[in-house]
Design a protein around this nucleic acid. Structure first.
Lengths: 219, 219, 219, 219
DNA sequence: GATGAATGAGTCTTCATTCAT
DNA sequence: CATGAATGAAGACTCATTCAT
């Protein structure tokens, strides 16, 4: 009877989360059972219950593992545009960077989908719902604050209220990611086209000519 | 106490669909059981099975009842821009009209949600999935064809491929609607702001100055 | 609104019984629902309930319609061997005649199967069970009495008790019919081979040489 | 209060099969539900599903547990008559042995009943149906081959084709067993009378005088 | 740490049955 | 006579969850 080390245990945990992620992506979250996850991981339901307290728990931990860093990086990038010489470019970079990572890392993409689909799979009052709502509000808030700064710098083109502009961006991002992640045939190749698609909206919001500073080599 | 006349029956049918719609909107589709629907309608599960063959059937019929007309109207509007003097305006109208109706009619909104999240409550091979996929492809195709016509008329500003532009529009629409449909507190007041938000993207695609009959300045 | 005549009604009744018979034969009795029967008859469940009070009722009435006459004819034939010059031949004729009719008339065959399968589809106390048991006992009794007469006439070869010989015959008959009626591929062509097969047992029971009377043209 | 050891589990399994067998015998297979089985075993429906995948599975496993050995023993005995000095006696022994065991072990009798009535409780395409059909064909085939050997040895009396003789035997066996298994009062005491009844048919097929080693008088 | 066994609640679905029209 | 609508009970099956080992 070989004792499992703390390492082994942590490893099992990750294996389970990987299994859950893979299944969530391919067959949806609602349709994935704990048995499915255990089987996919080559383990039994009991193991799932050792590591997690229930399905919601798995979803939340999965979100944190897969998107937590990405999320906070993005929030930071947005707040740092204040210290950039070209805050508009920095903003563009933050957004397109987020999209690029989501497009390239299925795990990160899943996190977005979790956020969108939580509508469907949680009860009215669920903790998970609150958790995800918080994260989304953080995103929204960070974008909003960034836009406020850009406006102070006279770097916004559109007349729309900042709050709405922030929501436009969020909605567009979510819409693009959602189309991209649809299981089955992917109608959208985000990794390749995402940036150009994003610019379609960004060009309505931000200056097309890069901001005034001395050199404007273009983007 | 069974109902009797053909009228009564059709009425019951509608009551059941209404009940289903209400529950789907408030507690999600995956979480809504046929018992829930029957109870909400003040009937028994047996009655549900008398009128529908299963849950997927309900969802599909609900989609058709709630969105069928809207869907086809939109497809027609898009095809009719060819006979408009201002096809770009006609296109704008078609899109914003769709959005306005989705925003104002919860039932229509539900139909979009069904389309977006059907992965969560249908199997890989489900008929419903194929059905909804077809409808989405119709949308996409109609938008694409409309854009082709607009390009022939030199009414498109963006360089992006038409297919991608069509997808940008779809994604944006879906994203906006998704944000708007969040159960609980709606972060987005689409009925009020939707048009302005849509224009943010449309202005990147279509001429901002309405087209001047025969010859326009183009872009 | 053309009033249905008594004729029409009786006709519907027969159509329903026919439908039931066809389905019982092809998919078993337990697996056949009242809906199946109604549909097969091109009618609705309501019609079934107008003519019959429940499934057991259908089965019993079906038995009587399909086998009643055959049953009583057989009983009579057996009792009439007393007035035959060659009672052993008359007995053989009665038995093989029964078998021939069962083999050639699916309806009659079904009646036997109903009798055999009632084991499976009725509750411990069911009327139907008692009814069918009575019919079977009648068969058994008639055969038994016939054998008693044959013994008095010294026309029995086997030493076995008469009661057991009667049961041997019944079991053999039932076994042959059962094999013959098995839905799917019929391993047994009773109409062709039944008589020869029957004789295999009859020759152990009855004289092979036709009974003593003047002329013995053989059978 | 879940059971623990592998022993306990296997025990539970057997308890469930016993419960199923008892109920099948007393109230028929079609009328027995999984709930009934669970209750009879003092367990819950969940336990049934832990050990078996569905009702058909139970029936098949029950067949194998109760009749598997008997079945294969019989097949072997039939094939071994070739190495017997008195193949006709060995054949008789095999058949009467089978019958005796069926008569004495209710479990084995149930297996026959399952085979005879499976049409009543399985769908057209059911695996179980195919499985049982295979077993029956094995029986038929084994009897047929045995008869072929006996004929080579000039040990058959009847003129009937071998295939038909095999079917006569099968039908007779099934018929006898069926009569014997009637729930409620058994009209037939197979354990006591079965052998004599069987001989009635066997004596038409095999020599009555046991074969005399090397050379027999033939028939 | 992980497993296998068992539970029990819940869901879908089928069906015999009733009844107003 | 017959239909169509509706009921309600029952059955099969799934699954999250618990727990002894």
């Amino acid at each position: 009877m070989p004792k499992k080390t703390k390492q082994d245990s942590e490893n099992t945990r990750q294996v389970l989360l990987d299994a859950a992620a893979a299944l969530f992506i391919h067959q949806g979250i609602a349709k994935t059972t704990l048995s499915d996850i255990a089987a996919q991981a080559g383990l039994t339901r009991g193991a799932v219950y050792w590591h997690f307290s229930n399905k919601e728990d798995i979803i939340r931990l999965l979100w944190e593992r897969n998107a937590g860093e990405l999320h906070h990086t993005f929030l930071e990038q947005l707040s740092e545009i204040r210290s950039s010489n070209h805050p508009d470019l920095a903003f563009r970079d933050a957004i397109t960077g987020l999209m690029r990572r989501v497009a390239n890392q299925p795990a990160a993409g899943l996190a977005i989908r979790i956020m969108m689909h939580c509508v469907e799979f949680t009860g009215e009052q669920a903790d998970l719902r609150r958790f995800l709502r918080s994260r989304r509000n953080e995103l929204q808030g960070a974008i909003h604050r960034a836009l406020m700064y850009l406006e102070q710098q006279h770097l916004l083109r559109a007349q729309l209220s900042l709050k709405l502009q922030a929501q436009c961006l969020m909605s567009y991002l979510f819409g693009l990611v959602h189309q991209h992640l649809e299981p089955g045939h992917h109608p959208l190749h985000l990794a390749r086209d995402g940036e150009a698609m994003l610019e379609l909206l960004l060009d309505s919001i931000l200056p097309v000519e890069p901001s005034q500073h001395p050199d404007s080599t273009g983007r």
